[in-house]
Every structure is written in C-alpha cells, then in structure tokens.
C-alpha cells in the first residue's frame, strides 16, 4: 500500500525550503498555524511569520500591502475562511491589483470530516476561478502539494492553492515527476472514456480505472492539478480519442473542475461530460473515508458513476 500523507504536509515542507531560498517570503496565518502547517515556518523563521489573529479579511489586506513592498506573502487559513469569509478582500485587494500574494488554504473539501458542513469548503475553486488573473491549483498528493507551493513562489502574480486535512495516498513519488503551473498529467492511457480528476480524487480515479479494466472498460486518467489556467491541450487530445469525459473532484459540481472542463469542451469539442463531485448539497459530519464513500468520491463511487455514464 502506498504511503499516506495529507497534502497540507507538502505545504509545510515547501515553506521550510522557501524560507531558506527566498528572503522575501513572509508567512501569515489566522490562528490556525498548527492545522495549516504554517507553524513549521513560524518555528524556523519567527521574524518572517505574522499571526493576523482570527481576522482573515485584514490578513488578506496586510498581505497585499506586504507584496506592494516587495515581499512574497503566503497567507493561510482554512479554505472556507480564506476564500469565503475574505472573498471580497481577495478579489479587490489582491486580484484586482494583480498582486504577488499566495493564498494557501488547507482543510478544503468534505474530507475536513467531523467538523461538518460549516468548515467543509466545496465552493473555493469556483470562487477563486472567477477572479481574473488568479491561478488556481489543487494538488493530488503531498509530492504535488510541495512542488506546487514552490512553483507558486517563483511565479509572479496571485495564486490560490487548496490543500486537504486528511491523509491520502502518495501517487507522485517517482523520479521523473515534475510540476509545472498550467500543465496536466496523463496518468494512464485508455481509449473508452477520459477521467479528468483533481486533488485527492486523482487517487480514487486511478483505482476506479483499475476496477473498470477488469470489466472491460479502458479508461484514460488525467490529473488536472492546475484548474486555472486549464491545460486544454491534454483534455482536447483525450476527448478526441475517447469522445466521453468524466470529471471527478472533491468540490461542488458547480463552478469547479467539471465546470471548467465543460466550458472548454462545449465551445471547442462538444462531447458528453459527466461531472462527479458534491451534487449541489452541503456536507456533514463524519470520518473523511465515510464521507468520501457517501458522496461517491471513492473508487467505488467513481467506478459506478463511469459505468452508468457509459451504459
């Protein structure tokens, strides 16, 4: 069995390296440094860490001011508060002036688990994707989370990255793994159907493809870690081959990866698309695994959805 690690761990590991590489990196949190993993940076670089307290809106504005003074601020909270509570600050104080701020939010999606719907952000991709010029990244595992964080530091402009709370399988621990903003990855070739997945649903999609194989369905699996800008080339190529596309994400089916893929395909190569995700409902309390199963995002759920879609 693969190693299990939460994507937020990759964020903390990247921040530690970035603290040494770039003196201009400054990290802020809103009283969740332990949970978001900014705490590891705080310990190593106390002079470059600032706690805004439980005041996310102000934190975004301070980050804007820091970036206008040559710093590279990484600001963290839970996805719910970073993109929800502080949406308009992100939009007007960071997005509109196109500032070099990295909004790195943990506890995205329903795998927050027991805390329940108030803390399970399933709209963050949608909210951030709508802001002109905002890069939106949803890493699949700890390896990608670390690589994406580092790439964001060297990219000039606003970036949103979502990380998860729960441990998920490591799928990218190979020597030739490389992360590039805006580039998707072909994980498995297939000819019958394209599964486009993001975040921790990449793992369940890979496992679903294995299960489908035994039933005679040859699925192609693509990891879209950068949702904006979308790697349209890799999606178009696969859609032309399979003519059927399934999107899988731990996010509302409204406004996230599924919407981004549909927006592109409907204008450029209309094929039938099934969106697997949270079906316009709020989450609930429960273990991450139980919720993943209930909301049809585990490999069984994805397998079932793909089979129904093809029949």
């Amino acid at each position: 069995m693969a190693d299990m690690k939460a994507t937020r761990e990759g964020y903390g590991e990247a921040l530690l390296e970035l603290g040494n590489e770039l003196q201009s990196v400054v990290v802020m949190d809103a009283d969740l440094a332990g949970a978001t993993r900014t705490g590891v940076f705080k310990k190593a670089f106390p002079d470059r860490f600032f706690n805004a307290g439980i005041a996310e809106a102000n934190m975004m504005g301070i980050a804007a001011g820091l970036s206008l003074s040559g710093k590279i601020p990484f600001v963290s909270s839970f996805a719910m508060f970073a993109t929800g509570r502080a949406y308009e600050q992100v939009r007007n104080s960071i997005g509109y002036p196109h500032l070099n701020v990295k909004i790195c939010a943990s506890h995205a999606g329903i795998t927050v688990g027991e805390d329940g719907a108030s803390h399970q952000c399933i709209e963050d991709i949608s909210l951030m994707r709508g802001i002109p010029g905002m890069v939106v990244i949803s890493p699949a595992d700890v390896v990608e989370a670390k690589a994406a964080t580092k790439a964001a530091a060297y990219y000039k402009g606003p970036v949103y990255i979502r990380y998860g709370r729960s441990n998920v399988p490591v799928i990218n621990d190979r020597d030739d793994y490389k992360f590039e903003i805006g580039k998707g990855t072909l994980i498995k070739e297939g000819k019958d159907v394209t599964i486009v997945a993001t975040g921790i649903c990449v793992d369940s999609s890979i496992k679903a493809a294995e299960a489908l194989k035994s039933e005679g369905i040859d699925a192609e699996v693509i990891n879209i870690s950068t949702i904006k800008p979308l790697d349209t080339e890799i999606i178009l190529k696969s859609a032309k081959k399979t003519k059927k596309v399934v999107t899988v994400e731990e996010h509302s089916i409204i406004g996230g990866l599924g919407s981004a893929v549909c927006e592109f395909l409907s204008e450029n190569y209309p094929v039938k698309v099934l969106r697997v995700g949270i079906k316009d409902v709020f989450g609930e309390s429960g273990s991450a695994a139980a919720l993943f199963e209930k909301y049809g995002l585990d490999s069984k759920g994805v397998t079932k959805a793909v089979k129904e879609f093809l029949s």
């Binding site: 804007a64 001011g65 206008l68 003074s69 710093k71 600050q89 104080s93 509109y96």
Partner: peptide
C-alpha cells in the same frame, strides 16, 4: 494601480487600511 502616485487599488471600504498596515509592517521588517 497603473497611475503614477497610486500606491494601492482601493474603493471597497475598509480594505485600504489593511494594505497600509501591511506596508508599514514591511517597513518595520
């Protein structure tokens, strides 16, 4: 931003002061 002399985009009330605080914090750092 884009006009000489404008240091921050503002207009949505309550937000400018936070950016100013960020600039002051950077100055102290």
């Amino acid at each position: 931003l884009g006009l000489p002399g404008i240091d921050m985009a503002t207009g949505s009330l309550g937000q400018g002061i936070s950016a100013a605080v960020g600039m002051a914090l950077a100055g102290k750092m």
